[in-house]
Write a protein that binds this DNA or RNA. Structure first.
Lengths: 204, 204
DNA sequence: CGAACTGTTGAGCACAGTCAACGACTGTGG
DNA sequence: CCACAGTCGTTGACTGTGCTCAACAGTTCG
């Protein structure tokens, strides 16, 4: 929650060394949507564009390593290797964004919350990446932030978490620490198993 | 609607020379979400990844210029210029995806439909890019596809279009051709004016 | 202590989903 | 040629998920 770095962070570029940053967009009437969550280590900044209309905000304690905009853009011109890595990261972010488009557009509230917990577990507790049976982690976001991430209200988030607790899928301590007792159940709740059609591209 | 190219289009890379392609993701129970619409000219293909779990499908007549995967990846290694342009395109796609995250997560059905019409007008009728008073174009998508794009049902899409017609904002001919009589009204319906907070990054 | 913030829970309602019927059009085969 | 099935779009009636409004408990901080 504490602030590190300064406001020039937008105009410059930074490496996120530790902590979690949220990217948000807002409508004028106050409705807000989190459009990206970045976990360390991650590169922050949007090359080739002045006006992004995206707000970046730290959600946990954060350490940054910032560079002036000009320096980074010079570096990008000189080093194809740097641009290559930036491209890879951007492609990954695009994949993640598209995954969330499915979640926001087509999943129910309980599926959204389950998907969110899985995503957090994957990124925070990096040890249990594979097909673990259980997991344990601290939520980096408040209920209100989770609701802005999932496109629902904080009341609905709270109710769905209560439901997961009642079903014995998770336990919660201090409203922030989550213990997943049954990852498999959580997974089956999150995704009615994403599938790709086999007959894709018939028309291409 | 007709099919051009073939199934190897996924494994290879292509330039989309004309027409419109949709990128979709599906859940196993049939729910589907369009995660991207690409208008010509556009580069198709996902470098550095085997498994994308995204389906690409033509929604109009399409002409492609395809290259074998290996050739393009060799080219990318050799030419920083090529990779540079690919990075720019990817960043733009990421911006669009994030814009749609707000639409899917936080807008009402009527706002979604209005936003969709504006987006199509911007991409199809490329002449009236700026602040035009009216516009006219053919929808590249069916009602069902629009609903998969907006994360709502086709019935709701149909009702919202009827409503826009009743309000005198648009006229429709043959279910496909849309004439926007009042772009300003359409704009005000689409976005309770996107705004960025001024105090962003206080915590960064 | 009171104020502010976060999280939980309840009661009622509304927006969008579901289910169903129908018209217009298209292509198919008897 | 026409009957038929299939797709697409529209509209109506009803329902349910998730939103709104509200009260309340637990913490933190001045």
């Amino acid at each position: 929650m504490e602030l590190i770095g300064d406001a020039q962070a937008v105009d410059s570029y930074s490496n996120l060394l530790s902590g979690v940053v949220k990217l948000t967009k807002s409508l004028s009437d106050g409705r807000q949507q989190i459009v990206g969550l970045q976990f360390a280590p991650h590169f922050l900044g949007r090359p080739f564009k002045v006006e992004s209309s995206i707000n970046a905000e730290a959600v946990t304690a954060v350490t940054l390593c910032s560079f002036p905009r000009a320096a980074v853009e010079r570096m990008m011109k000189g080093s194809p290797e740097f641009e290559h890595r930036l491209l890879k990261q951007t492609l990954n972010e695009l994949d993640e964004a598209r995954e969330w488009l499915v979640t926001l557009g087509r999943k129910t509230a309980s599926e959204k919350v389950a998907s969110f917990l899985l995503m957090i577990a994957r990124n925070i507790d990096s040890s249990v990446d594979p097909v673990a049976r259980s997991a344990s982690f601290d939520l980096p976001l408040t209920r209100a932030e989770i609701s802005d991430f999932l496109g629902i209200t904080n009341e609905t988030v709270s109710r769905q978490l209560t439901q997961l607790r009642a079903d014995g899928v998770i336990r919660i301590e201090n409203t922030r620490h989550v213990m997943v007792d049954s990852m498999s159940r959580l997974r089956s709740m999150a995704m009615p198993s994403l599938s790709q059609k086999t007959d894709s591209l018939d028309r291409l």
